[in-house]
Design a protein around this nucleic acid. Structure first.
Lengths: 354, 354
DNA sequence: CGCTATTCCGAAACCGCTTTCGGAAACAAG
DNA sequence: CTTGTTTCCGAAAGCGGTTTCGGAATAGCG
């Protein structure tokens, strides 16, 4: 229990505390001989420097914080866990600590952040899920406190981030659908104050334009980020007479809900109506039918974020750390060419449903 | 940036540091008058005590750690995220910190824990996923360091835990299947050094016995905790001539894989072969067919764990904090009475497959 | 009004480690 | 052998709080 302290170690060695301390920290004004002697005695006695005292003396926190997203919907995202794992990994190389802070509410977020940087408990922060214009980012930029964000805000200049190009992904999705022969492509999105939702919607639109398709407001539905959200949105979208033949969803979770809505209408997803999700979660493989999706390269994002943050804390220029990765289409069974007879099918079924 | 310090606050007030400190901490030897004066000045100047200094002086860490499970399989469990959320909640009431520590490997786990308690960085620990006999638990019990575990080891005495009764759940699952008419019930499990896997396997066996069924070693398959694991296990189980008519899986993830295996054989899950999972993850609703499962009451487990740990740190007796919750059967579409013609079907299909 | 019992605050030691500063010891050069 | 450098270590002052201890000021009491 009672740890061996620097003082004890020092008098055990017959040296001054300061000397021992400098020896442990590889100061150049300690002779190799004594340095070695100290080292040996140190791990003979099992000396471990008290982190708290060291922090206090140096002012360095040797810890970073992860600010949990508040709006982690019912479907608690597995991303958090993966991300933390990677972060922990990156930090463990320096034996730094990882603090997880959980704002009480969305409004509390900025305040929690303020307190955090003021507290000096950490020397860097990682943020998740930025909003379109994110007060936290603005605050951190202003103070110059080291941070990195997973994702990015609409304004992506002047800070470090790691993101997947959701805009491009959605353009690709549209391209794919068009290549398949679709022209009536709808989008199920999420509230665009979340910037990732905004990016992806934007990509959908850009994709439409790039293919000479005109955007139809009735083909865009903003829904909750849950399976039910996707389900309801899909259901509504499909009840129009001129209903779309393909659905792009901002999220796999929604897409899986959309699948259910299609089946509920008596149609078969991937034949009567195509759907493409985004994320590439493992579950997609087991959806009914298996979900085609724009898959994010999840691998080691946490690790990368950690390494980048560390570099920034070391004095690196945040702007040098902006990495944009690509999502890849993984085709499964929920997409296909549009049914030629879709017109007939639609009328039959709508009678049936009503 | 430069925080206002106690000394500054003190001389601003014309009081001694110690006095101000005691005033802030509600010592009884401070007159209400000065206490109030101090309070007012404090938040006028925006004084926030330096956490690190306080820690050093008091020896209290005001933080707890969550030891991440190392073996978080590819399917990163969303549990972690939920649990952290709850923990954070519980801690925020006291403004304590939550540290997440990530052991480098399974072997490193005990060592990491040792370092952690030795470091004095936290005043309590929460553990996850105990093994059947868990060295971490033994260690913590011996040292008397406050901790709580999510789940429990085979020996559940002498420490605090929060667990779901997996044994009972599996007995219930067997009962349910038997009531449906099944007698050839197989089990897909996980390596039993993980105690939850052990408990559930045990429950399966007990359920069999309670229903007068004899256990058949060929009906028990230990697989990886992934969809593929469940898929392979189910496939093998179903290739026996006297194959089971029902599968109980230690995990929904496996069960979803098992569903795939059944479909791959050309059978329909829930009719030709029943399967019951465990966990009640949201995805089960969208499996093909929707998965019947023993659902855990996930709600607020993190919060509860946090509150309990806090109580223990406050001096509570760990043995007073052992809570066992029940899992509930949620029926969806993957279970049903056994097919009478199962014999015929099996033969036909096995030819087909071979 | 004097004396004891309270109430309230100041002073100082301490928590464990870092870091600056100055000087003793050791060595080189003149 | 002195003087001038280097090399290496000791001493001490923090870092920003907490907590014990003793005493001054105030109050209570006869």
């Amino acid at each position: 229990m009672s740890r061996v302290t620097l003082k004890e170690l020092a008098q055990h060695l017959g040296l001054a505390e300061g000397t021992v301390s400098r020896a442990m920290n590889n100061y150049s004004d300690i002779s190799p001989k004594t340095r070695e002697k100290v080292q040996k005695a140190a791990d003979a006695l099992g000396y471990r420097p008290n982190h708290t005292a060291r922090r206090l003396a140096t002012g360095r926190a040797e810890a970073v914080a992860y600010l949990m997203p508040t709006s982690s919907s019912a479907i608690s995202n597995p991303f958090v866990s993966q991300l933390l794992e990677g972060l922990g990994d990156a930090l463990s190389k320096r034996a730094w600590d990882l603090l997880v802070v959980q704002p009480q509410s969305a409004e509390d977020e900025l305040d929690a952040l303020r307190k955090l940087v003021a507290s000096g408990k950490v020397s860097g922060v990682v943020l998740s899920r930025p909003t379109k214009v994110d007060a936290r980012i603005d605050y951190l930029k202003k103070t110059g406190f080291p941070f990195i964000v997973h994702g990015r805000a609409r304004d992506s200049a002047g800070y470090a981030w790691y993101d997947i190009d959701g805009r491009q992904a959605m353009m690709d999705a549209v391209d794919h659908l068009v290549a398949l022969g679709h022209s009536k492509i709808a989008f199920i999105g999420a509230p665009t104050y979340q910037n990732f939702a905004n990016d992806r919607l934007d990509g959908y639109r850009a994709g439409l334009a790039a293919n000479g398709l005109v955007e139809d407001a009735n083909y865009i539905s903003i829904a909750e980020l849950t399976d039910e959200g996707g389900e309801r949105a899909a259901f509504d979208l499909l009840s129009e007479p001129e209903h779309p033949t393909a659905l792009i969803c901002v999220t796999d979770v929604q897409a899986i809900g959309a699948l259910a809505a299609i089946r509920a209408r008596g149609w078969v997803p991937g034949e009567d109506v195509s759907v493409i999700g985004y994320d590439g979660v493992w579950m997609g493989r087991h959806a009914n039918p298996p979900l085609t999706s724009m898959a994010q390269p999840q691998a080691h994002s946490g690790r990368q974020l950690g390494d980048m943050l560390l570099s920034i804390i070391d004095g690196g220029n945040p702007e040098d750390f902006q990495v944009l990765r690509k999502a890849e289409l993984i085709r499964r069974k929920s997409d296909g060419p549009p049914k030629l007879a879709s017109q007939k099918t639609r009328q039959a079924t709508s009678r049936e449903v009503l």
